[in-house]
Design a protein around this nucleic acid. Sequence first.
RNA 1: GCUCCGGUGGUGUAGCCCGGCCAAUCAUACCGGCCUUUCGAGCCGGUGACCCGGGUUCAAAUCCCGGCCGGAGCACCA
Length: 526
Amino acid sequence: MPELRSKAKVVLELVKECVAEFESLSEEKKRELIERYSAELKPKAEKKEQKLSPLEKAEKGKVVMRFAPNPNGPPTLGSARGIVVNDEYCKIYDGKFILRFDDTDPRTKRPMLEAYEWYLEDCEWLDAKPDEVVYASKRIPIYYEYCEKLLEMEKAYPCFCSKEEFKKYRDSGIECPHRNTSAEDALEIWEKMLNGEFREGEVVIRIKTDMKHKDPAIRDWVAFRIIYEDHPLVGDEFCVWPTLDFESAIEDHLLGITHIIRGKDLRDSELRQRYIYEYFGWEYPITRHWGKVSIHEFGKLSTSELRKEIEAGKYRGWDDPRLPTIRALRRRGFKPEAIRKFILSLGVGENDVSVSVKNLYAENRKLIDPIANRYFFVWDPVEIKIEGLDSCVDVKIPLNPTKGGYRVLKGSKEVYICREDFERLREGDIVRLKDFCNIRLIDKDGAKFKFEGFELKDVKKGKNIIHWLPKRDVVKCYVYGVEKDYEGFAEKNALNDIGNVVQFERFAFCRLEAFEDELEAVYTHP
RNA sequence: GCUCCGGUGGUGUAGCCCGGCCAAUCAUACCGGCCUUUCGAGCCGGUGACCCGGGUUCAAAUCCCGGCCGGAGCACCA
């Protein structure tokens, strides 16, 4: 009853009276009243699924959003955040999702040709297939047009100051001498720029803002510069390239973007770009910015850093399981839904987040645990002998506790077990080979055990149950790990699951990748 | 230094705009229990937080002021 709030004092008095009246009643009467009214109390509201917070001013069916990477490497978990969050909002509001390659610097942040394709692939895999794909480098003439308009309007000008010179003007809030160039002269210089009549660095186009703006970063920023370098996608067609701020400002308008969500490092962009929007009478999209994500186990998710390390030979490639790229996660057998959930759980706050990859593992585990078949993998194997077990027996072991089903191993007197399990045992100890039999260590140096029976209840549970493999019925197995690689033997039954994620019991979930001379697997997570 | 932003359990997040149903949500981590067989999986349970100080108010995680701590930008990179 919210309308009573303003009369809180009066209500409080009334409540006190009621309580006093209630207290004065007999115990029996109290109990009766409690029972009569407790039925009316509502149960606690059922828990709601965690969702993204609503977008301000978003109308269903009218939202247009974009993710705008520079394809200078494959998408990482960081890029996936941009893809998934933008896509998710589009899904919520029935909007349009655009993938735009902001690839207008052929040198410093040079795009990588294969990466264009990788972005497309990974978006689709993440269930975020864009409704439209735009390549900025293929639309350079459009940006030229808008530049010319601004030059005509004298809202932009060619500036011959060197970087250092201009910095002085900027820091002291003084207009540089080129700022007053007439539209006519400016267009003439522009023409010469396009014709390649200037050297790199000789002249740039600046957007007029306010040389007295309280944030120097906003003052007359660069919109175009000259770079003589082949572009991986469009070759040497252009020598005048727009900066991100210009290209993105024009594109966001042309594409009808209504909402932008991007990193807070681009917060100043908005301040700069608003000048262009004002000159053309356009409406600036609604923006939100998020902080950096770092994953404890991976560190910062910088593509350029990864590239250096790959080039230095530290990793086997962009899909090395130790890397935070989507390709690597894909190879490891993660489910796209798990990655989406993990990313959405980070929200869209402005503070930097530092989260453990275990959260991602947990999401993925929920999805694969019910379907992944179980197999034995013995890493760092030790061969042991079991005395007193005369014949081979078929051992039936469940394939998956939820799905059901069985696989069969040949129980024999010569088996492999993990070295770490073996080392832990002392002479006289009993262990159980899971689903097979109990054995007692009688000679550690000779790795000899004695058969003690098949009954499970004869051994304690827990650490006393270990996995094993028959010596004569195994394949060699190599696991590409995250911390390190593992070598050993796996059961042959696993060959039925090539391409799938399985659980190597007491080890981890792994994706079985290939089988040639040996089984190759990639570590997924515990 | 200048400009802008943020601070909820160990970690991440919901709630903040529009103060009360918040002795604060969900997840993960951690701890404990359960399972005729994974004690590295699964299932169940438990511990654990509103940065600090002041103000406004009957009432503050929520509004205001100050402090402290953290981050981003200040490129002819994106």
